[in-house]
Simulated assay, not measured.
Amino acid sequence: MFKNIVVTLDGSDNSNDALVQAVDVAKTNNANLTLVSIVNETSYYYMGSTVTVGTTPLPTDMKEVQRNAAQKTLDAAEAYCSSQGVSVKTQIEEGIPKRVIVDSYTREKGYDLLVIGKSGTDAVSRVLLGSTTAYVVRNADTTVMVVG
């Protein structure tokens, strides 16, 4: 039924649950599986050269910090997939996650199933801008499986 599956990962428990489901669906359907993690540009856009929270300085290159975290998430997910006998492709993207997911992974790249966790790690963005998952469900041009 599904031949090209993509799962979005942000390191949250819900995205890890989404990965488990995506692997099961990929195995059942003998489908291709792609793992995607998105570096959220809104998290580092306003960062200056000196930022502190209380007395703790934050990294000045938040983009690089997020890229490293995304790579660690993908590496762990790829190891899990390998342990389940599923080969995968991985991709790190940059941008506003909900827009990247809808524009690139439900419209342009030909995936017939997108698997996503019901909520992710970015609670502040969710409160201010709305849930990534809700946006994806409303705007996707493909089947969406929400796991959580």
Rank of each mutant, 00 (worst) to 15 (best):
F2C: 04
F2T: 02
N4Y: 09
I5T: 03
I5E: 11
T8Y: 06
D10Q: 05
D10L: 04
G11I: 06
S12Q: 05
S12V: 13
D13T: 15
N14L: 07
N14C: 15
S15P: 00
N16V: 04
D17H: 11
L19E: 10
V20C: 00
V20N: 10
V20G: 06
A22V: 01
D24E: 14
A26N: 00
N29L: 03
N30L: 07
N32R: 13
T34D: 10
L35N: 02
L35R: 01
L35G: 07
V36F: 08
V36C: 01
I38N: 07
N40R: 00
E41L: 08
T42V: 14
Y44C: 02
Y44G: 08
Y44F: 15
Y44E: 09
Y45C: 11
Y45Q: 12
Y45H: 13
S49D: 15
S49Y: 07
S49K: 08
S49L: 09
T50R: 14
T50L: 15
T50S: 14
T52C: 09
V53A: 15
V53T: 13
G54E: 04
G54W: 04
T55V: 06
T55W: 09
T56A: 10
T56F: 01
P59L: 13
P59I: 03
T60P: 06
T60Y: 10
T60F: 08
D61A: 14
D61T: 02
M62F: 14
M62P: 07
V65A: 10
V65W: 14
Q66W: 05
Q66S: 15
R67G: 05
R67W: 11
R67Q: 13
N68I: 08
A70M: 05
K72D: 14
K72A: 12
K72M: 12
L74F: 08
D75V: 03
E78M: 05
E78T: 13
A79F: 02
A79H: 05
A79N: 12
Y80W: 08
C81Q: 11
V86K: 06
V86Y: 00
S87Q: 14
S87D: 15
V88D: 09
K89Q: 12
E93W: 08
E94G: 08
E94V: 02
K98H: 03
V100E: 04
V100G: 00
I101F: 10
V102H: 07
D103C: 04
S104T: 11
Y105H: 02
T106Q: 06
T106G: 04
R107Y: 07
R107C: 02
E108F: 02
K109M: 10
K109Y: 06
G110E: 04
Y111W: 06
D112A: 04
L113E: 01
L114R: 04
V115T: 00
G117Q: 09
G117E: 07
K118A: 15
K118N: 15
A123T: 12
R126G: 02
L129K: 07
L129E: 01
L129P: 05
G130W: 06
G130I: 10
T132R: 01
A134R: 02
N139L: 05
N139G: 01
A140I: 11
D141Q: 13
T142C: 12
T142Q: 05
T143R: 12
T143Q: 13
T143E: 07
V144F: 10
G148F: 07
